[in-house]
Simulated scan of single mutants.
Amino acid sequence: MNAVFQPYPYPLIAILRGLTPEEAPQVGKVLFDTGFRMLEVPLNRPGAIEAMQSLVRIAPADAMIGAGTVLTVAQVDAVRQAGGRLVVSPHCAEEVIAHAAGLGMLTLPGVATPTEALRALQAGAHGLKLFPAEMVPPAAFKAIRSILPEGTPMFPVGGVTPQNMAEYAAVGATGFGIGGQLYAPGRDADALRAAAEAFMQERQQLIRNAA
């Protein structure tokens, strides 16, 4: 499973930091309606597991819901028990990667160097979260990609906007993780929808350019 994870061209992961269980159904509906199919709720805020469960309950059949900021094996187990299938970490924790992969969950650990990237793949990561992307500009991203196995899914995360996605796609990004540029606690549905549509429009442009 390590070699290829590419459910569709340029998957976008919505990073919903601070999402509450009460807000989750409305936020999830807006994102699903605009085309998002990968959603993560970072665990370093109260109510994260409950919010993730709310998303799982309303998710389309082709969606993948899970958690971010997963730091321990115990948290992996909690995410799986709550119905999550996606495990995203900010760092390369080999025991977390191996445990999640062993449970059949999609694991995308955070890396910022060639050493971390190779260690993560050896531990069983299905793809790599290049984080923070502000520290891994396109030129550095390209250099890291050049030493990885062909077809390794790579997601810049941190500071991703519709305006800079093409720069990363040009040097091998296969998807993107999007946080504060998309969602922030309390953002109203219209603003969220407008942001989501802008990212999806750029994704469609990348697909056209790659055709």
Rank of each mutant, 00 (worst) to 15 (best):
M1C: 14
N2E: 15
A3R: 12
F5G: 06
F5T: 08
Q6P: 06
P7G: 11
P9I: 11
Y10Q: 04
P11F: 06
T20D: 04
P21R: 04
A24D: 07
Q26K: 11
Q26I: 00
F32N: 06
P42T: 12
P42C: 13
L43Y: 09
L43G: 07
P46M: 11
P46S: 07
G47P: 01
A48F: 02
E50T: 09
A51R: 11
M52C: 07
Q53E: 13
L55A: 03
V56D: 00
R57H: 02
A59E: 06
A59F: 08
P60L: 04
P60T: 06
A63F: 02
A63T: 08
I65M: 08
I65D: 04
G66Q: 05
G66T: 07
A67M: 10
T72K: 11
V73C: 12
Q75A: 14
Q75W: 15
Q75K: 15
D77R: 14
D77Q: 15
A78L: 12
V79A: 08
R80T: 12
A82Y: 00
G83A: 01
R85T: 05
V87E: 04
P90S: 15
C92P: 13
C92F: 14
E94G: 10
E94T: 15
E95D: 15
A98P: 04
A100Q: 10
L103Y: 02
G104F: 11
T107L: 08
G110E: 12
A112L: 10
A112P: 03
P114S: 09
T115F: 03
T115L: 05
A117N: 06
A117C: 13
L118I: 14
Q122R: 15
G124F: 12
G124E: 10
K129C: 09
P132M: 13
P132R: 11
P132K: 07
A133G: 11
A133W: 09
M135G: 02
A140Y: 09
A140T: 08
A140Q: 10
A140R: 13
F141W: 09
A143N: 07
S146N: 10
S146A: 15
S146T: 10
S146G: 13
L148R: 14
L148A: 14
P149C: 13
P149W: 12
M154S: 05
P156W: 01
P156V: 03
P156S: 04
G158N: 08
G158W: 10
G159W: 03
V160M: 10
T161E: 00
T161F: 00
Q163V: 05
A166Y: 00
A166S: 03
A170R: 14
V171E: 07
V171A: 06
G175W: 02
I178V: 13
I178S: 00
G179R: 04
G180Y: 09
G180H: 09
L182S: 04
A184K: 15
P185C: 03
P185F: 05
G186E: 05
R187C: 01
D188E: 10
A189Q: 01
A191C: 00
A194W: 00
A195H: 05
A195R: 05
A196V: 02
F199G: 01
M200H: 04
E202H: 04
E202T: 11
R203N: 02
Q205V: 05
N209F: 08
A210F: 10
